[in-house]
Design a protein around this nucleic acid. Structure first.
Lengths: 342, 342
DNA sequence: GAACGAACATGAAACGTTTCAACGCGATTC
DNA sequence: GAATCGCGTTGAAACGTTTCATGTTCGTTC
């Protein structure tokens, strides 16, 4: 009800509206006296700045949009949290949208965020959004890709070196004595998936000992898909099974774990080792604590937001790719087996 | 760059700005002819409505704030997703903020959302925010409490019947033959916790057979706290241990599971049954799939948003409390043990 | 064919900011 | 003491909508 405007504040403080605005936005261009008088007036009247008017006139927005396409994956919550932390430090609010795999939904959100005239966009894309992002850039809305390396250098991106991660994971499995490794994951349309697999291949081929690497494809990176992949592996005769599984992410790894250990049919890590990717918080909490390639998820979010703000501040900046290195986190699911063959 | 305004559209379509605005907002008050002409003009120019100007003039906002205080709990992601679904159906964007237990952070977000003049606020509070929410309401911003029953009827709320949930959980444990039950959870400042415990008490006392109910307190509802609680239980001699654990939520339950089963020290459910609360997606994926009291999390979010929009539309509406019933989901962690004592 | 009403269309005012050219005024310089 | 400078301040314009009082047109009725 009490809708106090900058004009009321000005009147109450005995200054002009311009001065009040200056106190709010560049206090050093204004005398001490005015500052204090305006500030007490603000206090007394309980004035709250009207962001809509500000945005309208100054064309500058205090919101950033974040579109996540796999809202199910806890990894992204950490990314969002990192971005959020940084945003709140800058007094910026985050418009959040998760879209699953619904392309319409994605479009809706981008429209919505465009109407809101967000300062910029963080996006963890599932499919191909380049076209749309370019249109947005024409309108002055920058985008930063999250968790997805932008090869073409059209947009900035913040991601993790998935090839290195795949390599490190398989290196680790080999170092702990495993020789028959299966990569479990999909879909192969996703860059993350192919990169991690490529890294795994490099490690398998570069090992000092002969290492077999097979691929068990899944349709998505979900727990459910992990479970069915596990069932498929269990259906094979024992001697045909791999002795280690590298899952494309922790959700798949947890699914695998569930189907292998669940029925007490296979011992992890004794018979089969499992390593995942992301190191989500549930990885440590699994019944057999899961080894994983940790991504600095919060840092990714934070960095993405910073890059975005910088670019929004200076549109001439050329896109830049930030790549973090993943980190091997060893837990019980890949305990070395001293008595193992090889 | 191409900043097309309603005026440009009007010119291009050969009508007045008022007509364009009408086409956008109440198309039935305008002739067919105008509608189509305006619409093609919009298409051709790539016009996007400026939400800031709209908000400024009409005082009506297309954003809703959602403040979650326990951003770690996957349960809330589902709630958010439900709210989001409903929001996108109304063309409304969600400003998202999670605050952990940082009270400052919470204040920052409420300030931010107030500046943004959100249409309303969904809030899953940890501590006491009534004061602040009342101030917001004075300014015309309604709030709906999520996952927290508002006893005083000052605000609307959407939550689950935690007492009933506690009762059903213990009923189930008793029905499957358990007699020595421990409630594991905390902090007891949280209403959810005390309600679930109260329900557990009712069930224990109302059972046909004698049932012991003890309380193992935790400092938070996290996996880590579940683990330490599990360690504490394990330290007791075997004959002093409970034969069933009712965890205040799934995070704690997963922690318990991890510490009990992890070292293969205790068989679940043979020696100890475990039931959680929330039925987060990882509950089913645990190595021993976890029984849980399911909350209709997405429905909670959706309903909360609906209630909010209704109230924002008609400020005279009196607050109303929506309470859902939880649902027992039985999985292996509470498999009945026919040969059990009692 | 005058009068009336329905159905649309019009365009200026208003929303609350930020911005900026212009101004006031005391201090400094020649 | 006139000219110049710098520091603060001022107030009006402008941002892109929605709203609403006022017009215009056209079909109907007597």
């Amino acid at each position: 009800m009490a809708n106090v405007s900058i004009r009321d504040v000005a009147r109450h403080a005995g200054v002009s509206v311009g001065t009040v605005s200056n106190v709010l936005n560049r206090p050093d261009a204004v005398s001490e006296d005015s500052v204090t008088r305006v500030q007490t007036a603000i206090e007394e009247l309980g004035y709250v700045r009207n962001e809509a008017a500000r945005k309208l006139r100054a064309g500058v927005s205090a919101t950033v949009g974040f579109v996540v396409l796999d809202g199910q994956n806890p990894f992204f919550y950490d990314v969002v949290r990192g971005a959020e932390d940084e945003a709140s430090r800058h007094g910026i609010a985050i418009l959040y949208g998760s879209t699953g795999e619904d392309v319409n939904r994605e479009r809706t959100y981008l429209d919505l965020f465009e109407e809101q005239q967000v300062r910029g966009l963080l996006i963890a894309p599932y499919g191909d959004v380049n076209r749309r992002l370019e249109r947005l850039r024409e309108r002055g809305i920058r985008a930063v890709l999250v968790d997805r390396f932008s090869g073409e250098n059209k947009f900035s991106s913040v991601s993790v070196d998935n090839v290195a991660g795949g390599r490190m994971a398989v290196d680790h499995l080999v170092a702990t004595g495993r020789r028959r490794i299966a990569f479990v994951g999909g879909p192969f349309a996703m860059r993350q998936v192919t990169d991690r697999l490529a890294g795994a291949r490099v490690a398998a081929e570069g090992a000092d000992v002969p290492v077999e690497l097979e691929v068990v494809a899944t349709e998505a990176m979900s727990v459910a898909e992990g479970v069915t992949a596990g069932e498929r592996i269990l259906r094979r005769p024992r001697e045909d099974r791999p002795d280690a599984l590298f899952a494309v992410n922790d959700l798949v790894a947890l699914g695998l774990l569930q189907s292998l250990v669940g029925g007490r049919r296979v011992m992890v890590p004794e018979e089969v080792a499992i390593i995942g990717f992301d190191d989500i918080s549930f990885a440590a909490a699994a019944a057999v604590p899961l080894s994983s390639m940790r991504q600095p998820s919060a840092t990714i979010g934070m960095t993405a937001l910073r890059v975005l703000l910088e670019e929004a501040g200076d549109p001439t900046l050329i896109p830049r790719q930030t790549v973090f290195q993943p980190e091997l986190v060893v837990r019980r699911s890949t305990d070395p087996q001293p008595g193992r063959k090889g």
